[in-house]
């Protein structure tokens, strides 16, 4: 019944994980600052969106930063034009507005023509917890992952955010980088390169929680308690999927001997990570049962407030409910 926290570059134990001192956006833009210092073709288009680290960028690289105003459609089209002329363009806004608001432009330019503009969205899931459903970003993975050429990087902590700066800069395709608004514990270390697109954070002999973004942190807590407390010697692992499309072969090699898979995401169930896993299993005739945890609005958007955990509670995605539900599911399967 041992928890095997794989040797990430840091030797942290789960219990030691500390809330990061730096936001994901600052971590990302700090790294972009270093990249842009050496490559003057890096251009940032911000649709009236900031970050303390971006202030430094703007101050030092005036000709590489443009505020495009609250005009996301034009931000994408001008980004595409700049990129066609050889610039390496990052388009930055609150996540729903840099994806859904300008989806037609993303589809017709970035996806259809494979123009390597990098979209940077802050605030996936409920991370704008006080702002209501206009600012929640719970449909973006579904719609962005259907686009040919598009690579999605979903940040887990400030280290992934930093790593995604370099990975996206080197990527020849359009990318969508999802940065959580809230400070979360750092799971990864500075040496991790994130090239594999996923990481087994805890090995699981019987089952895995496959998760992404902020829910990775919930999964780690749930699994720790589950593995420590259950009487059946059941061992559950955690896989963090931080890049889509998923490398199917790599993923299947990790989970093929599992008796069940639990997917967990702060995103709508339709078309999200869990949906993606079901597609992979179906397409590869893998018959492992899958239990999906995510948002199901039942025709009512979330107008709840009072913190992210409280909002997630409405959908059974708070730690306490998840712990109970996942434990009972695992026991029923294994």
């Amino acid at each position: 019944m041992s928890i095997v926290l794989q040797s990430l570059s840091s030797s942290q134990n789960l219990q030691d994980l500390q809330i990061s001192q730096i936001s994901q956006r600052d971590s990302f833009w700090n790294e972009m600052y270093e990249i842009a210092k050496k490559d003057r073709d890096v251009i940032v288009l911000a649709a009236d969106m900031g970050a303390p680290a971006l202030d430094k960028f703007r101050r030092d690289f005036g000709g590489q930063f443009f505020n495009t105003g609250i005009a996301e459609q034009n931000t994408i089209t001008t980004a595409a034009g700049l990129a066609l002329a050889g610039k390496k363009v990052y388009a930055y806004a609150i996540a729903p507005f840099i994806t859904l608001r300008c989806f037609e432009q993303i589809k017709c330019l970035l996806a259809m023509m494979n123009i390597p503009v990098k979209l940077v969205g802050v605030g996936p899931g409920f991370s704008y917890e006080d702002s209501g459903p206009t600012h929640h970003t719970v449909e973006d993975i579904s719609i962005m992952r259907i686009l040919p050429n598009m690579k999605i990087f979903n940040s887990t902590d400030s280290k992934t955010a930093k790593g995604f700066a370099r990975l996206s800069y080197e990527c020849v395709n359009p990318c969508y980088i999802r940065l959580d608004r809230q400070l979360l514990p750092d799971i990864y270390g500075d040496q991790d390169d994130f090239k594999e697109g996923m990481k087994t954070l805890i090995e699981g002999k019987d089952s895995y929680i496959v998760t992404t973004g902020n829910m990775v942190h919930s999964a780690l807590r749930i699994v720790k308690d589950l593995n420590n407390s259950n009487m059946k010697n059941i061992n559950v692992g955690v896989i963090d999927i931080y890049k889509l499309p998923i490398d199917q072969n790599l993923f299947l090699s990790k989970v093929i001997n599992s008796q069940s898979i639990i997917t967990l995401e702060e995103h709508t169930l339709a078309g999200g990570l869990g949906s993606n896993i079901l597609e992979i299993f179906s397409d590869n005739s893998v018959k492992i049962p899958v239990k999906r945890y995510g948002l199901n609005f039942n025709d009512k958007y979330c107008y709840k407030y009072g913190g992210r955990e409280n909002m997630n509670k409405q959908y059974g995605l708070d730690i306490e409910t998840l712990q109970r539900s996942i434990q009972s599911y695992i026991f029923s399967i294994v």
Binding site: T77, T78, G81, L84, A85, K87, Q105
Partner: peptide, 25 residues
């Protein structure tokens, strides 16, 4: 041909982006 177009209101912004790139360069 420079771009795929047919979905309207898109090419014009691309033109502006190209023009900005030429200015910057």
């Amino acid at each position: 041909v420079e771009i795929t177009s047919g979905s309207l209101g898109i090419g014009f912004g691309v033109a502006a982006g190209l023009a900005l790139a030429h200015k910057l360069n």
